[in-house]
Design a protein around this nucleic acid. Structure first.
Ligand SMILES: [Mn+2]
Ligand SMILES: [Mn+2]
Ligand SMILES: [Zn+2]
Ligand SMILES: [Zn+2]
Lengths: 145, 145
DNA sequence: CAAAATTTGATAATGATTCTCAATAAAAAT
DNA sequence: ATTTTTATTGAGAATCATTATCAAATTTTG
């Protein structure tokens, strides 16, 4: 059992939930994606390998993974929530090209620190934050059709 | 005619659209709100004063105001988009208390600059950005029931 | 193995947003 | 001012992502 599965199992145990076969399948599919995905993409991927995982169960399981700190709902795009796994990944933020739809990741750099200070000042306990920038990427701006 | 209306009119003219009575009503309602609102709230407010502005028209008009640079869709909360007018306002970011739902605004501080530099590096032309932090506010953390 | 507790899949329901289209209003032309 | 053209509106239907329901299946416990 890999790390993520252990984390998930612990998380589940704490709330007397079970690490079932289906939940494991979903977990694996989530960690097979190394970029941002939406629920339907995941559903199709899972369906291709092992049939019979209901969309409902995916919708139920993703929030668990988020609470377990393994997954993040990082952006909303085309009216859908998009997720990415975060276990063992650096925090980063996203540029979203509004022309081609590409997502470019950027290391959080100095922002992290600033945010922490701001939160401190307002006596606000941050659980998570999200930074999304929209614009036109270099490719689209130059030639890119 | 106030400033916002002029800006909006110019924007509309450029695309041979018309500043109609209904659009003006919506514009006014938008600038009567000095905090974050969703479509339905706006709809109710407008309905209270002047009857007969269709939800459809509001949904059509808000994107125009956004494109005109008068309005911003700043956050998503309870599955609804939330807007705020930005004409003549400082850029700021938002803390969202996940317990009480309160929104706390923070001046952008040093973040603005950092973001600009990052965009430069990646040769990305930013049109807009959004920063939302989620956590528990001071009030909720101490006594606050 | 039987009983208790949790989970799942199928599908219906919800709700925000978008679409359609005939009726209306605004601007341009005569 | 009247007509013609063009853009807009309201009402309601349609879409579509997400949730809720519930009986059947799985997992855990004793
Ligand atoms: Mn990412
Ligand atoms: Mn604000
Ligand atoms: Zn692009
Ligand atoms: Zn609070």
């Amino acid at each position: 059992m890999d790390d993520q599965a252990k984390v998930f199992e612990n998380f589940l145990k704490k709330r007397s939930l079970k690490l079932t076969r289906t939940r494991r399948l979903i977990l694996e599919a989530v960690f097979r994606n190394h970029d941002h995905f939406d629920v339907d993409t995941l559903y199709d991927q899972i369906k291709t390998r092992h049939q019979n995982v209901s969309r409902a169960t995916i919708y139920r399981t993703l929030p668990l993974l988020v609470q377990a700190g393994l997954l993040k709902q990082s952006l909303r795009c085309q009216d859908k929530d998009h997720y990415e796994h975060i276990y063992g990944h650096e925090r980063h933020l996203h540029f979203l090209c509004t022309r081609c739809g590409n997502i470019i990741e950027i290391e959080s750099g100095g922002i992290e620190k600033i945010i922490r200070v701001m939160a401190e000042e307002k006596d606000f306990k941050i659980m998570e934050y999200n930074i999304v920038m929209r614009g036109i990427c270099a490719n689209c701006r130059t030639g890119g059709e």
